[in-house]
Every structure is written in C-alpha cells, then in structure tokens.
Write a protein that binds this DNA or RNA. Structure first.
Lengths: 231, 231
DNA sequence: AGTCAACTTTGATAATTCTCAATGCAGACA
DNA sequence: TGTCTGCATTGAGAATTATCAAAGTTGACT
C-alpha cells in the first residue's frame, strides 16, 4: 500500500466526488490532509468493528462492504464503484459497520473523519453531497431488500448483472472482478447455485464472460428470461 | 380520517420527534402548518409512486412501508413505530418510493415537505435530526439485508420477534398487530411457512401470543433455538 | 345466537436451494 | 514445462421453502 499527498484541485475524480460542488478556490483551501492511496486486490481497508478514523473516496477499482455472522456466513452489503464514498457510516459513529475489501487494484483518497465532519459543518455543498450519497445508499439498500426478499435466485442474479453492466455504459464489455462466491454472498445464494445459473444464462446466449469481462447482448432478454422461469 | 391543527409545543411526542433539539420558543416560531391526523387500521397513507407532498411523524400506532413487484409479490421494506418519520424519502425526491399502510389505528403529524425542507436549511438542529434518522434507516436496512441474505427462515423470524418486543421494553407483553402475511412479506417467506414456525416456537414455549399481544419469556432462548436448528 | 369474512393452521406435494464431494480449468511461479 | 493453488463446474442427494387445497378460528355485524 502506497500513500502520498493528494492534489485535489487537479483530481480527475473531483467532479464525481463529494467536493464536486466546490469552486477551485474552495478546494484549494480545504485545509485537509488528503492522502492518495493505492492498494492491490484482496486488501482489507478496514474491518467491521474497527474504530472509524478515515473516510475514503474510491477513485478507481471495486470494493465490497461485508458483514460477517457468527454462524460463519458472510453477506456483502454493498458493492462500490468509482466515485463512491466509504468508511463514513455516520456523523457520530465511531466504529465501522462493515469490512471494506478491494475486489481489484484500487486507488483511494483518504480523508480524516474528524476533518471531514468539520468540513461538512462549514461547507453546505459538502454536506449536501454527503447527504445525497446517503439517500442514494438508503434507496439502494431498500431495493436490495426487495431483491432478496421477493425474488428467486435467477431473477436476483439477472437484475444484478444488468445493473452491474449498466454502471459501465461506455464499454461494450464491463469489467467483472467478482467471483462466484462474491456473487453468492451478495445475492444470498451458495456459490454452486450461482455457478449453475450463470452456466444456464451462458448456454442461452444471454451472457458472455471472458477474462474478467462480462457482456450482456440484450438486458431485456435476460430480465425476461429470469422472470419467466418462475412467476 | 380526521385532521386538525396541531399544537407542537405541548405535543407529548416532541422529545422523540425531529423537533426534539429545539427550544420551546423555536417550536413556537416554526411557522409550519402542522396537521394532526388520525387514521384507522388498514389505511393507505400514500402510494408508491405518488408525488410526495407531505412528511409525517408517527405519533401513535404502527405502519408498514411496502414495495410491490410486477410479479404480484409485495415486500415490506420497513416497519415503523411511534416516533418514526415517514414520507420523507429525500430532499429532492418528488415521488414516494413505497406505500405507507397503517397496521393499527394511528395518530400522525403531517408536515408539508417544502416547508420541512426549508426548515431544515434554517435550523441545524432539525437538519441533524433528519440526518440522524437517515443514518438509522440505512443501518437498519443494511441489517435487514444481512437477515434476508444470510439467515434461514426460523432465525429471521426469531431475530425479528426479539427486536419487535425489544421496542416495547415497558410492557410485559408487546402489542403485535402483524398478520402472518405481514410477517411473510417482511421476512421474505410464505404466510404458511411463517405460521408453521410460529406454531413450533409456541409449542416449545419460547413464545406466547394472545389477543394481539406477544410475549417472549426469554429472548436468549429464542435466538438460541433458531440458531441451533441449523448452523 | 347465526353468519360471514378474514385470518390461521395443517397436510401433502412440488419446487427451490443447499451441501458435500469430485473433477476440471487456468494463472502463478519455480 | 510441470506443479500448485485457487476458482469454477457438475452431479447426487438432502434440506428448506413454496404452493395448493382444505379445515379450523376468531371476531364483527346482524
């Protein structure tokens, strides 16, 4: 893991970060100690239960937020793409509510939580940005509840895959660093079952996979198929 | 449904509402049109997809927030107790993301969303309160994801029942207005399956039910039992 | 008291999903 | 190039959960 001081002013991600609403001058005067961090795939950035000290902006790569149960099961609570914020569970939360693990090599900006908190008091734009992300996260979480509670395995997987590739509209084939186990832990299924469904989808030509890339020729078909295998 | 002007200053719920942090004077000067509303059980307060105009504070009673799927399934996204806020999906959200349906006769305070929004800009205490509820809701939603994704039926039900009675610490037996169908739609199970598990729990003396009241002699036992029927 | 409607319980059977075990596959590395 | 390790796939059987159908219960209303 490497770290250096970050130059927020010229950051390519600024437009998608929580500092998006600020002027160039305001960014210059943040007065925050922002670290620029690099971690390889499979790194745990922080553990569930750890005292929370930093928040991070995911600049590049993928991260999973995981909760573990005493019975040995793990549940991926959320998957993060570039531009997402992590580690900032709440205003006065002093412990991380999940573990953050990189799925790929990852670039992050690390901010001190105390400083970020203070900043959000001072700058309405930052507060709004955090607020908005929160709202987004809640909405996402509630959608997941519906997926997990009211849909069958194949429909869950199909919807998820469509959403995933939807997050990479530029590319023809989206990067796909998730293992079958990751998928299982995200969708509440066993790895084997995920594997079987994936194989089925591929057999039906609804899905192509190759070297960590995934492609869905026609999302509508995929959703239709998953919906029709069972009401 | 009856409505009259509300007297926030003397409201018994004020301490638990989003106006909790305000002084008596500030409450007097809210300048908000707060309506005092009463609705019977089984009323839909607003529908999923409706343009959002009001937020509500639940003063008394129980409410379920429901999302419906095209396939006919319904999923209860959240259950609200007294003191909870509803209808306030986000600052700039103009549509309700779920339907709100009363489980019991219910007392509500109705606030105009636009006014509440303006108020939260003006009064940091209100903003903080809303913020805090949000964080709470997100945390709750993520916990639900874990429940739905990583636990079996009996464990889900057990944890839920313990949480439910935990929300009524004063009483020996907690009010329990949920039908088996409600439980099923909350936990992602069929009504029949819920019924069977409930019967089992009662047979083992882990649970008593009588006239819309529920009692758990020893929550620890209940959780233990549900955990042990399967790893 | 009688009736109705809504909710609950129970049973039988089917569908879904999990678990365990074995095998296949591909990239990392010596 | 061989080997090794981690991941993916496949199969078979078991466990879990859903579905369908039929009674049973309860409470409200007449």
């Amino acid at each position: 893991m490497t770290a250096k001081h970050s130059d927020c002013v010229h950051c390519l991600m600024r437009g998608r970060s929580i500092f998006a609403g600020l002027s160039r001058e305001e960014v210059c005067e943040l007065g925050m100690d922002v670290q620029d961090i690099h971690v390889p795939a499979g790194t745990t950035i922080y553990h569930e239960g750890d005292p929370a000290q930093y928040a991070y902006t995911l600049r590049q790569g993928g991260i999973k937020l995981v909760k573990s149960l005493p019975n040995g099961h793990a549940q991926i609570v959320r998957l993060l793409h570039h531009g997402d914020l992590l580690g900032f569970e709440g205003l006065r939360t002093d412990r991380h509510r999940h573990s953050a693990i990189t799925l790929t090599g990852t670039d992050l900006c690390r901010l001190e939580l105390r400083a970020l908190d203070a900043l959000s008091q001072r700058l309405p734009a930052v507060r709004e940005a955090i607020f908005a992300r929160w709202q987004q996260a809640l909405q996402g979480a509630e959608d997941r509840i519906v997926e997990l509670g009211a849909k069958k395995a194949d429909a869950r997987l199909a919807t998820f895959l469509c959403q995933w590739v939807g997050a990479y509209p530029q590319q023809r084939a989206a990067p796909f660093p998730l293992t079958r186990q990751d998928l299982g832990e995200f969708l509440g299924l066993s790895t084997e079952h995920v594997s079987r469904i994936m194989a089925d989808l591929k057999r039906h030509g609804l899905l192509h996979e190759h070297k960590g890339k995934i492609e869905i020729p026609d999302p509508r078909n995929l959703l239709l198929y998953a919906g029709s295998t069972s009401a």
